[in-house]
C-alpha cells in the first residue's frame, strides 16, 4: 500500500526541499519505488536539487489540467531507476492546483509507487494545504530557532484539523519531527534552541537530526540528493532518518558530534 508523506514546515528555507530529495533518494536506495512531487508551484526547486531540471517537458500542473499524461510528466532518476520526480510549473501559480486534481494524480501514483513524497511550499496557504491534505504521514522540518518551532507548531495544528484524515475522523496526519540545520556549537553557545526544548514544545516523535553541513550546499549545486554523499554527516543523518521512517530502530546519534574534529574543537574553543 502506497504511503503519501508530506514534507512541510510553515516557515520558509528550513530545508523541506533538501529533505524531500534526501528522503526520496534514501527510500529508493533501499529498493522502495518512490516519487517526489514538487508542490511549490511557481518556484520549482525540487527538480534542480534532483538534478533533472533540464529534462522537464511536462509538469504536475499540465497533468492536473489534462494537458499531459502522468507518465509523460514523470522523470525517472538517472542514478536510481525506482526514483521518479514529478516537477512543477514555474510559470503558473498555486491557484492552478485543485484539490480534486491533486487527489486524482495521487491516486494514480499510488498504483505504481511505494512512497509518494510531497515537497510543500512554505506558508500555510493553498499550496501548503494541498500538499498536506491527502497525506498519510508528515515530516515536519524544523530549525532550532523560535520562529521555526512556532511555525511547525502551527502546521501540526493544521495537520490535525485541515486534512482528509482529520475530516474522516482518523485523528489527523501523524507527524515526525526532522530537526534540520542543527549546529551543536551554536546550541551550546545558547544561540539556538536545544533539541530537548523543541521536542518538549512540539511533542511529536523525532525522526532525525540533520546537522548544519556544507555537504548540503555542495550536493544541491551538483544536483544530487545529499543522501548519495554517504561520507557526509548530513547524508548519514538522512539515511538514519529514512531507516526510522520505514520502521527500523536506529539509535539517535548526533551526527555532527560524532566527528571529533571540527565540532569538538569549536566546542572547546567556546567553552
Amino acid at each position: 500500500m502506497a504511503k503519501i508523506i508530506v514534507v512541510t514546515s510553515g516557515k520558509g528555507g528550513v530545508g523541506k526541499t533538501t529533505s524531500t530529495a534526501a528522503i526520496g533518494a534514501g527510500l529508493a536506495m533501499r529498493g522502495k519505488k518512490t516519487v517526489v512531487i514538487d508542490f511549490d508551484v511557481g518556484l520549482r526547486n525540487l527538480d534542480m536539487i534532483m538534478g533533472c531540471e533540464r529534462r522537464v517537458v511536462f509538469d504536475f500542473i499540465n497533468v492536473i489540467q489534462g494537458d499531459a499524461k502522468l507518465k509523460q510528466a514523470l522523470i525517472t532518476d538517472r542514478r536510481l531507476e525506482n526514483l521518479a520526480v514529478l516537477p512543477t510549473s514555474q510559470t503558473r501559480d498555486k491557484d492552478a492546483l485543485t484539490q480534486e486534481g491533486v487527489g486524482k494524480v495521487l491516486d494514480e501514483l499510488r498504483k505504481d509507487f511505494d512512497y509518494i513524497i510531497c515537497d510543500s511550499p512554505a506558508g500555510i496557504e493553498r499550496g501548503a494545504h494541498l500538499a498536506m491534505y491527502y497525506a498519510d504521514e508528515a515530516v515536519v522540518v524544523t530549525n532550532p530557532e523560535v520562529s521555526s518551532v512556532r511555525d511547525s507548531d502551527r502546521v501540526l495544528g493544521l495537520l490535525a484539523s485541515k486534512t482528509r484524515r482529520a475530516e474522516k475522523g482518523d485523528g489527523g496526519v501523524p507527524a515526525h519531527l526532522l530537526l534540520s540545520r542543527y549546529d551543536p556549537a551554536r546550541v551550546a553557545r545558547g544561540e539556538m534552541m536545544k533539541m530537548e526544548d523543541i521536542l518538549e514544545i512540539l511533542s511529536i516523535p523525532l525522526l532525525g537530526i540533520i546537522p548544519e553541513s556544507p555537504a548540503v550546499l555542495k550536493a544541491s549545486n551538483l544536483g544530487t540528493p545529499v543522501t548519495f554523499d554517504t561520507k557526509s554527516n548530513a547524508g548519514r543523518a538522512y539515511e538514519d532518518a529514512v531507516s526510522r521512517l520505514i520502521g527500523e530502530q536506529v539509535e539517535m546519534k548526533m551526527q555532527a558530534l560524532e566527528k571529533p574534529g571540527l565540532f569538538s574543537r569549536l566546542l572547546r574553543r567556546t567553552a
Binding site: D153, G157, L158
Partner: peptide, 8 residues
C-alpha cells in the same frame, strides 16, 4: 486531550 497548537 491533544496538544493545542499555535493558531488554534
Amino acid at each position: 486531550t491533544e496538544p493545542v497548537r499555535s493558531g488554534q
